[in-house]
Structure formats: C-alpha cells, structure tokens
Design a protein around this nucleic acid. Sequence first.
DNA 1: CTGAAAGCGCTAACAA
DNA 2: TTGTTAGCGCTTTCAG
Lengths: 338, 338
Amino acid sequence: MTTATIRDVARKAGVGVGTVSRVINGSPAVSQATRQKVLDAIETLDFSPNLVARRLSLGKTQTIGVIVPYFTNPSVVERLRGVVSVIAASDYDMVLFDVETVVRRETCLRDVPRRRQVDGLLIVSLELTDEEVDRLDRSDIPTVLVDARHPDLNQVIVDNVQGGYIATKHLIELGHRRIGYISDFLNDPFNSPVRDRYTGYYKALAEVGISLRPDYHRQALHGRDEARKMTHDLLDLQDPPTAIFAYSDTQAIGVLEAARERALNVPADLSVIGFDDIEAAEYLNITTIQQALFDSGVRGSKLLLELMSASFPTPRKILLPTKLIKRRTTASPREVAG
Amino acid sequence: MTTATIRDVARKAGVGVGTVSRVINGSPAVSQATRQKVLDAIETLDFSPNLVARRLSLGKTQTIGVIVPYFTNPSVVERLRGVVSVIAASDYDMVLFDVETVVRRETCLRDVPRRRQVDGLLIVSLELTDEEVDRLDRSDIPTVLVDARHPDLNQVIVDNVQGGYIATKHLIELGHRRIGYISDFLNDPFNSPVRDRYTGYYKALAEVGISLRPDYHRQALHGRDEARKMTHDLLDLQDPPTAIFAYSDTQAIGVLEAARERALNVPADLSVIGFDDIEAAEYLNITTIQQALFDSGVRGSKLLLELMSASFPTPRKILLPTKLIKRRTTASPREVAG
DNA sequence: CTGAAAGCGCTAACAA
DNA sequence: TTGTTAGCGCTTTCAG
C-alpha cells in the first residue's frame, strides 16, 4: 500500500496543500467548513503526515539521542528507565545508541551531532575528552551529561566522594580498621566515579588516622567474577581485611560469592558494603550506598528538555546526594564485637 | 554554527552536487581526480550528509522501531539487550517506544507505521489484536514479534507450555503433590505466556493424576509484592502447598520473602521454582526455568533484518526451548524426604 | 565521467 | 481565509 500524501488529501478535499498543512498543524486561520472537508479527506484516506518530510522541512528532528555505554550494566539500565519515563511522555522520539567499543564511541560522538540526527543529546555514564566536548559545542546541539562530569557541560552527577566517604565511615564506626576497597581500574580516564569513591574512602580513613594500605586496594575490569577473584586475593593476605567496600553492588555480589566459597560468614567474618542500591542489593540484603539512579535519568532528561527550549548562559550542574542503606552484610568485626 | 551542505561542498570543489553525492555514496563512476577534489572539500568543510534529507530522498528511514511494554520488567530488559546488540552493529538506528499505558499503546501501534517513521518494527512481549495486526499488514512495514504470538506475523517465541510442564514435573518428581501456581492474571488477553505456563502446569499434574485445585492457583498483577501476598494466602490454607511454581523469577522472589516472613525454611519447608532465569535468580540461587531471553532479542532482530531485505512468503516462527536450572530452592517435601 | 534538474512530502512566506 | 510556490538537503535519472 502506498501511503497518502498531503497532496492526495488536498486534491480529495478540493483545497491547496497549504490549507491541509494548516489543518494538520491546528492553525486557527482555517474556516470551519474547509477544516471539515479536509478532516474528512484525511479520514477517508487514512492519512498521516510523513514524519521524515516534516522534519526536513522544519529543520528539527523531534528526536533525542541517548548514548549509553554498557547496556549490560544494571545501574546504567536503571538510569535509562528514568530517561525513558520522561521522554516517552514528551513529544520526542528517543533513539538509543549503545556504545560498547571505542570505534562505536567515536562514530557516535562524531556523527550523531554532525549529521543533525537529533535535536538534543543525553550522554549517560560516559566521560568525554575536551576535544569531544569541543566538537559537541561547535555542533551546538543541546547536550546533558548524566553520571559524567565536564566543566563545560550541563550535567547531573552524584556525589561519589561523599558516597565513598559514608561507606567507609560506616565500616569504621562498626569498629573495622582493616578495610579493603575493590574497584574498576582507577586510571581509566573515562571513569571519574571510581576515583571519586576512592577519594571518599581515603578521606574517611585519613580522618581517623588509618593509613592507606595499597595492598588493600584491588582493581580490575568491572564484573562480578573479577570482584570474586580480587576478594580471594585480598583474603589471602597475611592480615586480610575484615571489611570490604565494593565499588558497585555487582562487585559486592562477587565479594559475597568469594566469601561463600571460603565458608566465611557475612557479616560475622567479613563485612561487605556495595554501592548503587540496584534491585539485586535489596534481594540479597546487601548494605550499600544508595544513589538516585532512576532519578538521575529523570533529572537529566528534564534538564535537556529545558535546555532545548531555551539555552542557558552557563552550564548547569545538578548534584545528587548519596545515602547509606544498612542491611545485613555489615557488622562489627569479631575482635571488637566478641 | 551552520552545517555545511552538499551544495557548499560542490561549490568548493567546483563540481555539481550530483558528483558529490556519488562520492559520498561510493559510486565507482567518478574519476580519481574529481573524487579527490570532493574529498578535500568535504574534509575542509567538515561536511557530513544530513540524515533526515537523505532519508526523505531515499524513502527509507534507516531506523528500526522497538516497542516494549514495561521497561521496568527485567526479562524485557534482557531481551532488549539482545536486540540492542544486533541493531547497534547494523546500519540502522534504533528508536525505542516504551509503552506503559493503553493510550500510548494505541498511538504507537497506529502512528509509528503510518507515519513512515521506521523501516522495520520489533514488538517485544506485547500481544496484538487482530485489528492491530491488520493495520500493520496494510502499512506493510516488516514486523517481528518477540515473546508474543500471532498467526499472521513473524515471531520468536518461547515454548511456555513446555516450560510450565518441566517446572511442575520437577516438583512432582521431587515428591510434591500439593503444588501451587502463582501468576499474573490468566484472563489478560495480551498475555499468552501466563496461560501457556498454566497449561503446562495443568498437563504435568494431570499426567500423574493430581487433580487441579483452583485454590492452589492465585493471580494478581505482576510484581514482587503481589507475589508475596499471594504466597501468604496460599500458606494460610488448611493444607497449604508444599511447593510453589511462580510465573516469573520476580514473583519467586516475592514467594521467598513471604517464606522468610513466616520463618519457613526453603526448600525444606517450601520448595520454590521460578521462570525466566534472570540474573537475580542466579544470585539468589533460585531453581528456575531458563528461557533464552537475550537470545530471543538477537534472533528477533536478525529475523527482522532479514525480512527487511527480502520479505518472506509466509510468516516465520522461531520456537525457543526452555530448560530446568536446578538450584537451591527446590527439594523433596518433609513428609517424603523425612 | 559529470552537470543540471526533477523529485521525496512537508512547511511557511507571499499573494490574492 | 485560501492557493501557490519556494525551499529543506539529498538522490537519481537524463543528457551530454
């Protein structure tokens, strides 16, 4: 079936295409009678305006691009849920770019703005280089970062330093002195949260005069299994930590697995605290640091929508707080509790 | 910054727009010298073709629409991961339509095809009425259903009857005779998996002469908490079930919660089996029926890609099997194991 | 091999 | 109030 065009409607209704366009777009400058004729023609032809043509003519795509890395990461998905919830309710379509490789990252970041594919861009959990930001600026496509920082861009971020601090402090207050931290690679230039949480960890330790033990910090690629292995390494130490702070809940689950493999009782033998408060953390009763994942997506897309209707003079930053959620994987260490 | 157009490039290179177009599209009918001139102009102007214009001209959107209900549902997300993985690697953009309300369902299903927004449509876990399918057919946009059935459409589905059967059979073989089933509403016209799994449950019971006890089947809206409540109802019965088959892992988690609230030991006091094998099921060691969630997304999008390049004479159906994953929430009932 | 020109379906400015 | 027309930026004949 070949779809009806505005021209077919015009012919059928015996009017010009301009008039049809006016009716479609609800212009008041059409007489009741003509409007009705056009409406009838639209009805019988089952006409609906071709969006692509409309977009070209308007110079607007009515589309928001969302770039996410690792669609496999539960916290990214949770943010995305927030994004979806507001975009679905808006007049915009949402096109999703999943970035898993460096090549794809580059093509997305370069081509999407340049080809005028989208009216606005939301970038989730992906840190940009200055050069990339420059190019973005030049394309003047409104852009908002969620869970990623850059001085020149609008962003919704979480206070990771505070989160790392709270987590570590919680363990210290329970009486732990030997506290490990397992995380993604600290030197990943695109992952500031890892560093920030580490900073918080460090701050809390320093505050009470516990000196940093480099061997208590392990890093690897993100993942449950990697975390499991790092935990074993940590527990193989002469004087192993009595508590482990995991960079993410996913990793905390790996820690728990390692503990189980060694028949270690959590929290009696080993305290574990995660980060994110994903759903699984609740199921598994993992003590964790909650960050507003869903909400960060909501706030980010709302900010973008605002930005698209009226650009701000200077980039706006929204900082979301974190919160300790005490559950069953943390307790005082044996030597203290006993 | 106003982006360069093909005309700017043509002027700069001193050629016609047609030639530029040929270069962009890799037509061999351009001399090496001209090609180089054009390439240079493109380079200096940082030109990239406007996608919307290209789409209008070609009459193709280079876009695949994906309609999903309940982006909150972990198994839907898992399928989506599969979809994303193949679309991201193709030349198509993916636009995501999240459908949470009836109104949105209707607008999506009606407008997306009619407005020529997409070249192909993937519908996940959403069952269509005949009328909706008719309209889809008339729009002749290639469509594939994932986890949803319809006689006239291409589809990737899972053998839910078999899954329900396997689950129930497993419990029977462990010695259970009083087996409950908690699920979404059976009479939801858009949710055939609920009915199918129920059919499997029924078949397995009938096979060994256990008569169906209506009070052993509870239904409610999907959700963990609803499942928790249904479980309490079941356990309040005079002779409560010794095993519960939950329609989904999410619901199985609710069952587990109820058991914990009653200080019931799982699996000693109560066996629980779920369905889907989402990640949480693994963490929580829930015995479940695995279905190829990710794979269903992969298969569905590949089928769609195929369909878009050459339509099939008759709708294709891919049936994915299910598999029992034994973990720690099922065991023989006390009276038998005793 | 290359340029000119006619669309793709719509919007909006301009006349009438 | 309405019809006509010139684009939007690209692709693709059709001549040459």
